[in-house]
């Protein structure tokens, strides 16, 4: 365990050096990331200039939800970079052979070999937005709430990572990119609205098939004092653990199925 932490620090330091060597690149990436964060919320910002509430959710509440979702998403984005090109870079180009030769878990290597540093911006933005909303709504948060906040953020990042690991692991069986990843990536956005506006089918989809609701919506209901979802809120760690376990199992089966392309 200690060795893994040290390795993580080394990986991170190494990659940070690589990224910062190209300063102009990094600055452009940083501002693109900022722009994406703001524009992603542009729809809701523009909308609330025309309407007072979304169903019975106020602007502050929707903004809290969006801000909260940025925090686990930011952590996920920092480590998810390798997952997008996984089948191109690791399977088709055969880089996975190298990963298999090393005495550290394959999953660990793939996730921590590259970092998208600029996405830490999302974490900071998210915390600022949440802080602003808490002040505006005069929410009373105790010590336990802060603990829950940290726990649900970790769970949220875990859920995002698990979902995309499962999708990535599919490329161990099908080398051709089926094109599932981009649409699921866009579905991240749908978990950033109050789930109550959807019908049962989509609520089910976002809760139990692709559980983005457990990464964002259900945690925030607790902090907003919406007691109707208390049960779901307490299920957050359970769902996160369950999907993480599933992801590890699928990944390991995928690795067992891997055969090098020989390139």
């Amino acid at each position: 365990m200690k060795r893994h932490w040290r390795l993580l620090a080394r990986y991170f330091a190494q990659y940070a050096k690589v990224r910062l060597a190209y300063k102009a690149d990094f600055i452009i990436a940083f501002f693109s990331s900022m722009a994406a964060t703001v524009l992603g919320f542009g729809f809701v910002l523009v909308l609330f200039t025309k309407i007072p509430r979304l169903q019975d959710w106020s602007f502050d509440e929707v903004m809290f939800l969006y801000g909260f979702s940025l925090i686990p998403l930011g952590f996920f984005n920092v480590v998810s970079w390798n997952l997008y090109d996984f089948s191109e870079l690791y399977i088709i180009e055969g880089r996975f052979d190298r990963v298999l030769l090393r005495p550290v878990s394959t999953l660990y290597q793939v996730v921590f070999e590259k970092f998208r540093l600029e996405s830490l911006q999302e974490v900071v933005t998210g915390i600022l937005v949440v802080g602003y909303c808490v002040r505006r709504m005069h929410l009373e948060l105790g010590a336990m709430d802060f603990l829950w906040f940290a726990v649900t953020v970790i769970c949220g990042a875990g859920i995002y990572l698990a979902v995309f690991l499962i999708l990535t692991a599919v490329s161990f069986w099908f080398e051709d990119r089926v094109g599932i990843v981009p649409p699921v990536f866009n579905m991240l956005n749908f978990g950033r609205y109050p789930l109550t506006i959807y019908n049962v089918f989509i609520q089910f989809l976002l809760s139990w098939i692709i559980p983005f609701g457990f990464a964002t919506f259900y945690p925030t209901t607790h902090f907003l004092g919406r007691t109707a979802f208390t049960l779901y809120f307490h299920l957050v760690p359970v769902v996160a653990a369950g999907f993480t376990l599933l992801a590890v199992v699928v990944w390991n089966r995928g690795v067992a199925n891997y055969s090098s392309t020989g390139t």
Partner: peptide
């Protein structure tokens, strides 16, 4: 000219959508 344009593409994606 850039090392990776993934970030740029993402920003463009949201820009066009909105």
């Amino acid at each position: 000219r850039l090392q990776s344009i993934l970030g740029l593409l993402r920003a463009k994606f949201f820009l066009l959508e909105l």
